[in-house]
Amino acid sequence: MHPMLNIAIRAARVAGNLIAKCYEIPDNNYEVSKKDNNYFVKSITKKAESLIVEIIRKFYPHHTLLSEELRELYSGKNTDVQWIITPLSGTYNFIKRFPHFSVSIAVRIKNNTKIAVIYDPIRNELFTASSGKGTQLNGYRLRGSTARNLNGTILVTGFPVNQKHSIKNSYIILMKKLFIQCADLRRTGSTALDLAYVAAGRVDGFLEMGLKPWEFTGGELLVRESGNLITDFTGGNDYLVSGNIIAGNSSIIKVIFKTMSKDLMQCIE
Score class of each variant (00 low, 15 high):
residue 195 L to N: 09
residue 228 N to D: 13
residue 168 K to C: 13
residue 68 E to F: 00
residue 206 F to I: 10
residue 234 T to R: 14
residue 100 H to Q: 07
residue 84 I to V: 13
residue 137 L to R: 02
residue 181 Q to C: 09
residue 47 K to V: 08
residue 207 L to P: 14
residue 173 I to P: 02
residue 251 S to R: 09
residue 219 G to R: 02
residue 110 K to N: 12
residue 48 A to Y: 01
residue 238 D to Y: 11
residue 234 T to C: 04
residue 69 E to P: 11
residue 148 R to Q: 14
residue 219 G to T: 03
residue 51 L to T: 11
residue 194 D to W: 09
residue 184 D to W: 07
residue 224 R to W: 03
residue 163 Q to V: 13
residue 222 L to Y: 06
residue 21 K to C: 11
residue 81 V to L: 03
residue 153 T to F: 05
residue 3 P to T: 07
residue 243 G to W: 02
residue 152 G to F: 02
residue 94 F to T: 03
residue 133 K to S: 15
residue 39 Y to V: 05
residue 208 E to Q: 15
residue 144 G to F: 05
residue 203 V to E: 05
residue 126 L to E: 00
residue 65 L to F: 02
residue 220 E to G: 05
residue 98 F to K: 05
residue 234 T to Y: 11
residue 212 K to S: 05
residue 111 N to M: 07
residue 183 A to G: 15
residue 76 G to V: 00
residue 24 E to I: 08
residue 264 L to K: 09
residue 227 G to T: 15
residue 57 R to H: 14
residue 113 T to D: 02
residue 126 L to T: 01
residue 106 A to I: 02
residue 100 H to V: 09
residue 237 N to F: 05
residue 27 D to A: 12
residue 155 L to D: 13
residue 112 N to F: 06
residue 104 S to C: 03
residue 45 T to S: 14
residue 269 E to N: 14
residue 46 K to R: 15
residue 11 A to N: 11
residue 96 K to F: 04
residue 19 I to M: 02
residue 186 R to P: 02
residue 224 R to E: 12
residue 244 N to K: 07
residue 141 R to S: 14
residue 205 G to D: 04
residue 179 F to G: 13
residue 157 T to S: 06
residue 151 N to H: 10
residue 49 E to R: 00
residue 234 T to W: 01
residue 103 V to T: 05
residue 195 L to V: 07
residue 45 T to P: 03
residue 132 G to N: 08
residue 80 D to C: 00
residue 101 F to H: 13
residue 97 R to I: 03
residue 216 F to L: 12
residue 36 D to F: 13
residue 161 V to L: 10
residue 206 F to L: 14
residue 70 L to D: 14
residue 72 E to A: 04
residue 7 I to G: 00
residue 120 D to G: 01
residue 102 S to M: 04
residue 221 L to I: 09
residue 69 E to I: 03
